[in-house]
């Protein structure tokens, strides 16, 4: 039982990391009032460029860095349309996803199916990794687990809710006109946070191919970007909750692995549906069951609305 739990948690932490990174990036973008539906495409681009980089440079850090930069550039392209040109955010996001998925497949054509040799190896942090159950999961896997689950969400939470800059940032998402009147640079704020969100989506893609599934294949992102978007809504746009819910989703994924490993009498296709069905349930059930949730977990008031200074 302990063995099973330890194994499941380890898989959950590993799988949830992809979602945690992408969803945390999306929290940043949505808090300043921009819905970036391009996460899926940016993740695919990050995943494929990481594979391409490590196949010639042989350093996972360089691979991850390239994935982050590619994600940032993709985020800038999206932000150029959705923030600078103030075009429809849904369309720009979908277009970014199409471009990302199409380009990544075209780029990764000759890398498809080859195992990635250079990945982030196992590290075990002394003492901490020998804790029962959570030790091996959090401190006995790759080095990225700690920044993803502890450092980044805490930092984002601190900046967002404990600093003046965070207050400004949330003001831009809630009421850009008032923020503008108070002298906060609305456009710059939106542009750079969307870019940062894109960089984190790219990093999520890089993390996916450099730790969790070390091989590139078409369609390997498999809706993780969309699940991340759903998690942001589920978590009420809060950085720490979003990370915890990513872990919860990692558990759902781990459940389908355990099912396949133990030969449960369910077809793997149905086990693979679990994350998607789980996501559906998680964004529908809470609002149905607990009506107050809708107000507590409400989206930023100006989400998905372009800001025009002249028609204020």
């Amino acid at each position: 039982m302990i063995m099973l739990l330890t194994g499941m948690l380890a898989t959950a932490v590993l799988a949830g990391g992809v979602l945690a990174l992408a969803a945390l990036g999306e929290v940043l973008a949505e808090r300043v009032g921009v819905t970036n539906l391009g996460v899926e495409g940016l993740m695919a681009l990050g995943a494929v460029t990481a594979v391409m980089t490590v196949s010639s440079v042989h350093s996972p850090w360089v691979g991850l860095l390239v994935a982050i930069m590619v994600g940032a550039v993709g985020g800038m392209v999206f932000a150029f349309g959705a923030v600078v040109m103030r075009a429809n955010q849904v369309l720009c996001g979908l277009a970014t996803t199409f471009m990302g998925l199409g380009l990544s497949t075209a780029l990764g054509h000759s890398y498809a199916g080859q195992p990635v040799e250079t990945t982030f190896g196992h590290v075990s942090i002394p003492l901490l990794s020998s804790l029962p159950i959570i030790g091996p999961a959090l401190f006995g896997q790759n080095i990225l687990i700690i920044p993803i689950y502890l450092l980044l969400p805490l930092a984002v939470h601190f900046i967002m809710f404990r600093t003046r800059h965070g207050l400004n940032m949330r003001a831009v998402g809630e009421n850009p006109a008032a923020a503008d009147a108070a002298g906060i640079p609305v456009m710059a704020m939106r542009f750079w946070y969307v870019t940062l969100g894109g960089a984190m989506a790219g990093m999520a893609g890089g993390y996916l191919t450099l730790t969790y599934v070390p091989v590139w294949s078409e369609g390997m992102v498999a809706g993780r970007g969309w699940i991340a978007l759903a998690l942001v809504i589920f978590a009420g746009y809060r950085p720490i909750i979003v990370t915890l819910s990513a872990l919860l989703f990692g558990l759902v994924t781990a459940l389908s692995f355990v099912g396949q490993a133990h030969n449960w009498p369910i077809d793997p296709a149905f086990l693979n549906m679990l994350p998607y069905i789980g996501t559906m349930a998680f964004i529908i059930v809470p609002v149905v069951v607990w009506h107050r949730m809708r107000r507590v977990m409400a989206a930023p008031a100006a989400l998905a609305q372009p800001y025009y200074r002249d028609v204020r």
């Binding site: 369309l91 199409f98 471009m99 998925l101 199409g102 075209a106």
Partner: peptide, 23 residues
């Protein structure tokens, strides 16, 4: 040329049209 190029091309056109409509 990989068939997936088409998806990227469609995305590019969609992106440009979204901007054009706003302008």
């Amino acid at each position: 040329l990989s068939a997936s190029v088409i998806l990227a091309i469609t995305g590019l056109i969609l992106f440009m049209i979204a901007i054009g409509d706003e302008l």
